[in-house]
Computed example of a mutant assay.
Amino acid sequence: MRTGVRTVRKISSTRVFARIAPHVVPAVDRAVHRLTRGRVLLSAQLLPGLVLTARGARTGLARRTPLACIPEEATGTWVLVGSNFGRPGHPAWTGNLLAHPEAEISWRGADVPVRAELLTGEERAAAWEAALAFWPPYATYQARVEREIRLFRLARRTTAPD
């Protein structure tokens, strides 16, 4: 493992990072993504990333959120981990997907319509193990909170949203 990745994993597991990162990382990612017309997502230089556009649970307005993702190459799907950097509440984007599972992602510069599924049971357990292998700090985030971290699988959709 590269030293830089090891250092970032260590830093991202700290409580200070959990306090600061939710305010800084998405704002920087959104700005760079917009300036490069969807070609660059800064945080994706470390982890695969996408920009999720989902309708707000209460407002119905489009909400854009840069997120790390776990691409599942064999099935052409993506797993999203609602870790919220190990903070107590579920991130807003997870509530948005629960209310409105039809969404869109910007993946490697392409807009892809998707449908989100909240993972439960054995399917969640398998995805969680894959997430821990992918990014071990998720275990630290889960240990910090009483809630179960939500996992979603995004699959391409070919039909218009409801």
Rank of each mutant, 00 (worst) to 15 (best):
V5K: 10
R157S: 02
T77R: 10
V145T: 11
G60N: 11
R39Q: 08
A44K: 01
V79T: 08
H90F: 14
H90V: 14
L50D: 04
V81S: 01
A21N: 00
S106F: 10
D29P: 03
T158A: 03
P26Q: 03
R30D: 06
A127Y: 08
E102H: 11
A54H: 06
R55H: 12
P161G: 03
V5M: 07
V16E: 07
E123F: 12
G56D: 03
F152R: 10
R124A: 07
S83G: 11
E117V: 13
V79K: 06
A116S: 13
R55W: 12
R9A: 07
D162S: 11
G82H: 13
G89W: 09
R58Y: 12
I11N: 02
T94G: 11
A62D: 12
A57M: 13
R63T: 08
V28C: 06
R34N: 06
V16P: 06
W135G: 08
R58N: 11
A143P: 01
T120S: 15
L80F: 13
R144L: 00
A18R: 05
R34D: 05
G4F: 06
P161S: 05
R39G: 09
E123P: 11
E129V: 04
R58L: 07
T159G: 03
P22K: 02
T3L: 15
L47Q: 06
L98T: 13
R147L: 10
S83T: 02
L52N: 04
G76F: 00
A62S: 14
L41G: 02
P91F: 06
L41N: 03
T53D: 07
L151N: 11
R55P: 09
P88W: 02
R64A: 12
G89H: 13
R156G: 02
E146L: 04
P101D: 05
A62W: 13
R58S: 12
E123I: 06
G109K: 00
P71I: 03
P22E: 03
G86E: 00
H23I: 00
A110R: 04
T120R: 15
T14V: 02
W78D: 05
T77F: 10
L80I: 12
L132D: 01
S43N: 02
H23Y: 05
G121E: 06
L41H: 03
V79E: 05
T53L: 09
V5I: 05
V28R: 05
A143E: 01
P66K: 06
A62R: 15
G89D: 12
W93R: 09
D111R: 11
L98G: 13
G89R: 13
A155H: 08
N96D: 15
G4W: 03
L132R: 03
T14Y: 05
A54M: 06
I105Y: 11
R2Y: 15
V81F: 07
L98M: 15
L42I: 00
A126M: 04
Q142H: 13
T158C: 01
A160W: 01
N96G: 15
L42A: 01
A99V: 05
A31E: 01
L47F: 13
L67K: 08
R150V: 10
